[in-house]
Design a protein around this nucleic acid. Structure first.
Lengths: 177, 177
DNA sequence: GATATTTGATATGGTCCATAACAATTATCA
DNA sequence: TGATAATTGTTATGGACCATATCAAATATC
């Protein structure tokens, strides 16, 4: 209701001048059926970055379908494996995950017996994170899937050297932009 | 409630074996205070892509603060300017926006008098999209801000050649992955 | 030992993304 | 032609992700 009113208003305010009406008439049936021109959009960093990221995540999820791991979950398992004995706050913050949002993530991983919270004896407020044996096994399989299906795809698309250059540049952007 | 129960269960199932208890004890106070090791994470395409994208969007929003344009809104204005006379479905779909979600976006742009919906005379179901004069002016200012603040930042970080190589590779990933 | 801080957790709200459904209009084709 | 199917913009709605405020328990600070 406010929507259609806004639409009426706007289509009559700026476009209903003499010039506006002529322009609108000329546009009727403009390039119907033809593909749209992306123009400057195809060189906008943010645009191409976002689209690439969506495609990569999509591919990742397909590769991981058998293990049911999202990119975020995979990153948690990787980080916990590399840094066993750290607490939730440390793991979450280095991944850019806010502590409240990390709770449900861990609940999920723990309910699947991939990860365990252990009450710390030094600081009984905090939970130390460890991969379970199953978690280690699943992560090992996940790494193989990523290497053979996911990264291999990027290699055949860009070549080894370009792939490394791309990741290095992205890391630089992520860290120093 | 199911949460704490799951936590108890998992922390006692895989980690409370003789070996599990010893490992947990050894981990207490592991590398406290030291920075975490990213390990293989820093070479995961998806991870570095996502973090770079967040940083770039963040920077974009800062550069555009005076114009109050999000990356998505900027892309809509760019595409409508390059392809005037196309309808909502065409613009939305080439941007990867679903039609239902595009409605509110247009309501916003139209309420700010940056964009106008014009009922098509050829097909009276569809709305033709056009930039208003104000929309063209705002977009022109936005382009300048992007060029001088946003892209310039990337140039001084990577250099002109690397910047172009990065965007080309990202485009390839976005299109062919 | 009183006060402040930290940790994990809950509740909650916002934004973005996806699907189903609807009225109006147009396309299809028997 | 006229009945049926498809399309367009729209609404409603639910899920995923992200951010803030708040809390109890434990610890740190002074």
């Amino acid at each position: 209701m406010t929507v259609s009113k806004a639409a009426e208003k706007s289509s009559e305010k700026p476009a209903d001048t003499a010039k506006g009406r002529k322009d609108a008439a000329e546009l009727q049936g403009q390039g119907a059926g033809e593909a749209l021109q992306l123009g400057e959009l195809s060189e906008q960093l943010g645009y191409v970055l976002k689209r690439a990221q969506l495609k990569v995540f999509e591919n990742f999820l397909r590769c991981m379908a058998s293990l049911q791991l999202t990119p975020a979950q995979f990153s948690v398992l990787l980080l916990v494996e590399k840094n066993p004995g750290r607490n939730q706050t440390e793991i979450a913050s280095t991944l850019g995950i806010l502590r409240p949002n990390f709770v449900a993530m861990l609940d999920n991983l723990e309910s699947r017996d991939l990860c365990a919270r252990i009450r710390s004896t030094n600081d009984r407020r905090s939970h130390i994170l460890v991969l379970t044996d199953k978690g280690k096994a699943v992560l090992a399989r996940a790494k193989k899937l990523v290497a053979t299906k996911h990264e291999a795809r990027l290699n055949e698309l860009l070549g080894q050297a370009n792939r490394e250059a791309l990741i290095a540049m992205l890391a630089k952007v992520a860290n120093e932009f």
